[in-house]
Design a protein around this nucleic acid. Sequence first.
DNA 1: TTGCCATGTGCGGTTTCCGAACAATGATTG
DNA 2: CAATCATTGTTCGGAAACCGCACATGGCAA
Lengths: 295, 295
Amino acid sequence: MARHIPSLNALRAFEAAGRQGRMTLAADELNVTHSAISRQIKHLEAMLGVPLFEGPKNNLRLTEAGTTLLSGLGSAFDQIDASVRLVADTEEGALDISCPGTFSMRWLIPRLYRFQAEHPQIEVRLTASSRPVDFDRDGFDVAIRVGDPPWPKGGEVVPLFPEQTGLVLAPPLLQTAAGDFSGLAQLHTRTRPRAWENWRARSGRTVGTGPRLDYEHFYFMLEAARAGLGVCVAPWPYVIDDINAGRLTPPFGFTDSGHHYVALRRERRNRKASLFCSWLQQEAEAFSAAHPVLR
Amino acid sequence: MARHIPSLNALRAFEAAGRQGRMTLAADELNVTHSAISRQIKHLEAMLGVPLFEGPKNNLRLTEAGTTLLSGLGSAFDQIDASVRLVADTEEGALDISCPGTFSMRWLIPRLYRFQAEHPQIEVRLTASSRPVDFDRDGFDVAIRVGDPPWPKGGEVVPLFPEQTGLVLAPPLLQTAAGDFSGLAQLHTRTRPRAWENWRARSGRTVGTGPRLDYEHFYFMLEAARAGLGVCVAPWPYVIDDINAGRLTPPFGFTDSGHHYVALRRERRNRKASLFCSWLQQEAEAFSAAHPVLR
DNA sequence: TTGCCATGTGCGGTTTCCGAACAATGATTG
DNA sequence: CAATCATTGTTCGGAAACCGCACATGGCAA
């Protein structure tokens, strides 16, 4: 990039510090540490050849040059942000969604065609992830997660439906199993390590002992269950189709897990995200109405 | 830096390409290759979720989104540039000067106090360098160099004075030397490898053979000459004081070397650089008047 | 006088960005 | 119609910019 022109990042760091009045606040706003802001400003002062701040560390004030620079930069960056929004915040283009993999496969993707039919100009970019959401770090617009409050900062919570989980296994396995399922392999997933414990506590039921098998993803665990390799605890939305098709059976029905499915969206409004979350809520309501949980 | 906000560099690359109409022209303007521009724009389109250019490679046109984004960005970057200039282009602050080391020591620094007396609010930051000037790469405001046209692009040439060089040695050495100086060590500097050859050609004179000694800088070579270690070819401005003080003597006087001392300044006007170059020219004229070359 | 808060800095690492080289594409020219 | 040209697209490997962490420094308040 052309030399002797200050770095735009440095100008941005200075603008935030000047407007906020403190480097630590600018650091929060730009999601860096105060040392990054301090260094950028120091570099900028060297580049421009004039001090931008003066005074003691605990009471920095803008110099005249700093005030002059800030007044021009503030409106320029506002204009850049507005221009970017004008282009990005439309009802067409890409929308980035983060969603647990198995939930995508079992619940979201089978319904997504309806969203795309309604909004053909929105390109949904789906990323499989169950990782805790951090809107400052992550780049997606909406994250679907199952869990409990507190939800991460910087996001608005759109409730979908509560989660129910239940014991499920293949019907032939049920016919040959002991009454308390002792001896049957107990299938676990690393994504939800406390699923069994939680189910027992919540449902008040228990089963006999059996060998434990761990799978990396729900999907693999469900495949194993369908293959008759054992019994597992699964969320209702993930197994509806298998149950209706007779591939899996829930001997004890389903119980509230205490968790909730939610969509987390950035606080800053985004039309595509709004449309998507509205659609999600409608689908969630329709889902709950059309598939009352087997209790 | 906060995620999901496009890189300012990418926005800058896009703005230049949009305004110029071609990525190759934008690359020239921003001193990068077209591949850097192409990549930045591709990344920006992915980030914003909309295409900014359309059409075949050899005739890219802005999309509607691209046009919208460009109109906002253009004025924002203009405002940033103007704000930076308002702060940097004053008659106070830092001024970066690049100058060959020995010329600094022997000619510039002994005079610099007069510039600083006239302009106490300008902080001259001097860097020793003889390297070919590239204003796109280098960050200084003014470069003093000795040489010949063509001068590098992107700079305005401010002539100072022509260069004369001559054979110089310590007086005691002159007294004991053979008439043609044969046997005396011939001192060279890597900065000016052709100095001797050029002096012989230009002056029409020659000297006997002697061992050759190479020094990395003029300064060291002149130190060696003063110490009576040999004879060297030196530019007049570098040895005036030594000659006047009787530390060196020029047996054949000085001859035009064909080179010229110039100040190279950026094309874009900079008040401090203008002041400095005006001052330099005055000092150069005064120098030439006050120290007529010994012929 | 001590603790707190904010900035400054060194060290080492990460991310962004880049150039070089070549590929791909479409228009132009002979 | 094939070759050439001009422009953009992409991969690879490296450089520069930027950053976090940990600690230092300085000034103010309790």
